[in-house]
Design a protein around this nucleic acid. Structure first.
Lengths: 130, 130
DNA sequence: CGTTACATTTACGTCAACGTCAACTCTGCT
DNA sequence: AGCAGAGTTGACGTTGACGTAAATGTAACG
């Protein structure tokens, strides 16, 4: 099963982060490992959240941004107003990500065009070299 | 034409950044506005570069990363070794961006699934409310 | 000529996101 | 009992990317 809990160093190995980082995320309430005495044990839930955190970072989101995203996955589904609000936030976030994807596509296209130019340059240099 | 040069405050308005930011980017050699006396005038080239800078930031690249990307668009095309190196860098950068795109797609899919869940929750709450 | 608006340099301040000690505390082994 | 190794809590340090304040410059307008 994936129900096992991990110690802090096992988490570090699994995700390629330092212990300092995990403690920092806990202090920011992004993670909430259970405690055995003073030691932390990271659950499946913590691992799922950490995945989201790390991915968010790769897209340039701040930890504060990411905290809001995490809340989306944690809705309590009893209070309609609350659920609605969360839902709206998620829709906004989705729109933002789709815009980002469009921009990314644009940037990729441009870079590809530059690459084609580069190839031409290299070819002509090779021509001139003989 | 788009050949006009802009003052620093015009640039700020046009791009939604502060003057401090533009001076900072110049100090980091990301921009190189021409000088009339001590004053800066930003050219079409600066504007093109700033666009790339701001977009890079939105994707979580550091200014140093971005400086390398900018160099790609500035190749001098005389030295084959230099051109080759730049070309390789660009290819690596492209691969990175395409990976990022794949991840972004994944994240969007997940978020959409969450949204669908949210809709079901809202529907059932509405049912229960009558 | 004075003032207003915009710009400049220099320099210190700030905030996020950790890194890096130091000084313990547990736990398990031998 | 003693020791190693993993983990803990402070607390201060660092780096990147600017913010902010102070002192000064300059162009143009009434």
């Amino acid at each position: 099963m994936t129900n096992e809990t991990l110690t802090i160093s096992q988490m570090c190995d699994a995700f390629g982060v330092t212990a300092r980082t995990l403690r920092f995320y806990e202090a920011k309430e992004l993670l909430s490992p259970i405690r055995i005495g003073s030691r932390r044990l990271f659950t499946r839930r913590d691992r799922a959240r950490l995945k989201i955190i790390l991915r968010g970072k790769r897209f340039g989101f701040s930890l504060e941004d990411i905290r809001q995203v995490l809340d989306l996955y944690e809705r309590d589904s009893t209070n309609e107003v609350q659920v609605r609000h969360t839902y709206d936030l998620a829709k906004a976030r989705l729109a933002q990500m789709e815009a980002q994807r469009a921009e990314l596509d644009e940037a990729i296209k441009e870079l590809k065009a530059e690459l084609a130019e580069g190839e031409k340059t290299i070819a002509s240099l090779r021509q001139a070299a003989e």
